[in-house]
């Protein structure tokens, strides 16, 4: 479980987070939704300590992240997996070396042991046998899948995904969503997903918070979001032509 309490962050005059509080539960897909530019990425990076907060506190299962020293943060980070918007695979390394990288840095495993774990992770994301490919040779969907494999290789307790299916065709997007959902449930991770895709919300949104103008404008579960009357949320939910027509029926 991750708890954020009263997070504030601004860049000069731009107030991106204005007192955001939220609880993200274990074994669930916790979605953060909102328009582009609403601060989803900034929020996630604040939770991860990649961006320094102006004020507020963050708890990882009762461990106060804001008060941790350098070594404690480093140890916590080994329990965190992250899927970046563009995959962020190291483009000088093969798929295998990418996934193996955290193991090489933080374990004393032999190559055989590491290889076994890499193959398991690749298999888990349906990419078995692609060990020797370079990131430049992968399609968008394959890239995301390898990035998921790398994110889960250390068996993290916390998984962060920034727009996991942006830039993918709808069908591949659904596959990636399902994959994240399955892994979250299997491994009992606390998963936090940024998205602006309503389809993901309806498919895997165990818990959803809606960010608007730096605040949490709504929270609830996937089914409830269709029935809200709040105009701001409705505008987001029914933004597409397809959604509008379906609502009319």
């Amino acid at each position: 479980m991750i708890q954020a309490k009263e997070l504030y962050k601004s860049f000069d005059d731009l107030h991106v987070l204005k007192g955001i509080s939220a609880v993200f539960e274990k074994g669930k897909n916790n979605l953060i939704i909102g328009k582009s530019g609403s601060g989803k990425t900034v929020f996630m990076k604040c939770l991860l300590g990649l961006i320094e907060l102006d004020s507020g506190s963050i708890l990882y299962d009762d461990r106060n992240f804001s008060r941790m020293d350098f070594q404690e943060k480093k140890r916590l980070r080994q329990e965190i997996g992250m899927l970046f918007q563009g995959g962020a695979l190291f483009d000088s390394l093969t798929v295998e070396k990418n996934i193996m990288f955290p193991l090489t840095m933080f374990t004393r495993w032999s190559y055989q042991e590491k290889r076994k774990r890499v193959d398991y992770c690749l298999d888990r994301v349906n990419m078995a046998g692609s060990n020797e490919l370079m990131p430049a040779e992968l399609s968008g969907g394959m890239n995301k899948r390898v990035a998921i494999a790398r994110a889960i290789v250390m068996e993290p307790g916390y998984l962060f995904c920034d727009e996991p299916n942006s830039g993918l065709d709808p069908k591949t997007g659904v596959l990636i969503d399902n994959l994240i959902n399955e892994i979250t449930k299997d491994l009992g991770m606390t998963t936090i997903i940024n998205t602006h895709d309503m389809n993901s919300v309806l498919a895997i949104g165990d818990q959803v918070i809606f960010l608007n103008q730096g605040e949490v404008a709504w929270k609830g579960a996937k089914e409830e979001i269709l029935d809200t009357t709040d105009p701001v949320i409705n505008e987001f939910v029914y933004a597409t032509e397809m959604a509008k027509r379906l609502k009319g029926k």
Binding site: K45, K74, R75, I80, M82, A88, F90, M105
Partner: peptide, 16 residues
């Protein structure tokens, strides 16, 4: 290019 493709942040997340 590692910076703009978030590879540097990926290292940081891993605790490196």
């Amino acid at each position: 290019s590692m910076r703009i493709s978030e590879q540097i942040e990926a290292l940081e997340i891993m605790g490196i």
